[in-house]
C-alpha cells in the first residue's frame, strides 16, 4: 500500500460516483481509502438556551445518522474488495475540515463529487467542490 486517498461524501448520487472513482483509483495505485463526511458547523453561530441544552444529544443523533445513512452503506458496499477502508465523520467548515484531514493524514489525493447547490446559491456562495479545487493542499479530483 502506498499513500491514502480521501474521498469526501455527502450521501448524494455524485458522492457515490466519487466513491466509485476513488475506489478504482486506490485499487490501481495500491492506496488506501479514507471516506470522510463533514457536517457543516460553526462555533460562532447563535443558539437559544434550549438549543444549548440539547446540543450534546443532537450531536450524538447527527453523528449516528451520518454513520448509518452515509458512511456505512459505502463501507459495506466496498468492503473486502482489496482496498483498505477507513472512515471519519467531522464537524466544521466542510472545505477547511477536508483540507485539514488531508494534511494531517498525509493524503496523496482528494476526490469529491460535483454536487451541492446549483444555480444561484453556488454562484453567490460558491460550491464545496469549486472551493476545494482552489484550496486543496494535494491534487483534487472532482467527479461529475
Amino acid at each position: 500500500m502506498t499513500g491514502k486517498i480521501i474521498v469526501a461524501v455527502d450521501g448524494s448520487e455524485a458522492g457515490a460516483r466519487a466513491m466509485a472513482h476513488a475506489h478504482a483509483r486506490a485499487k490501481g495505485l495500491g492506496a488506501s481509502l479514507l471516506v470522510v463526511h463533514v457536517l457543516e458547523w460553526s462555533p460562532y453561530t447563535f443558539l437559544t438556551p434550549e438549543e444549548l441544552e440539547e446540543r450534546h444529544a443532537r450531536r450524538k443523533q447527527e453523528l449516528a445518522r451520518a454513520e448509518e445513512a452515509i458512511i456505512s452503506p459505502l463501507i459495506t458496499r466496498y468492503d473486502g474488495q482489496g482496498v483498505g477502508l477507513e472512515s471519519a465523520i467531522r464537524y466544521g467548515h466542510v472545505v477547511e475540515t477536508i483540507c485539514d484531514i488531508a494534511e494531517k493524514q498525509g493524503a496523496i489525493e482528494i476526490v469529491t463529487g460535483r454536487t451541492g447547490n446549483s444555480g444561484m446559491m453556488s454562484r453567490v456562495f460558491g460550491s464545496v467542490a469549486g472551493t476545494l479545487a482552489q484550496v486543496a493542499p494535494v491534487p483534487c479530483t472532482i467527479v461529475p
Binding site: L39, W41, P43, Y44, F46, P49, L52, R55, R90, Y91
Partner: peptide, 22 residues
C-alpha cells in the same frame, strides 16, 4: 483551546452569546 474533536458541541462563544442575549 478548543479540541477540534469536540467540534459540534456548544462552544464557549455560543454559551457567552446566549448568556449575553439574556
Amino acid at each position: 483551546y478548543s479540541d477540534p474533536n469536540d467540534a459540534g458541541e456548544v462552544s464557549h462563544f455560543q454559551a457567552l452569546a446566549t448568556a449575553l442575549s439574556g
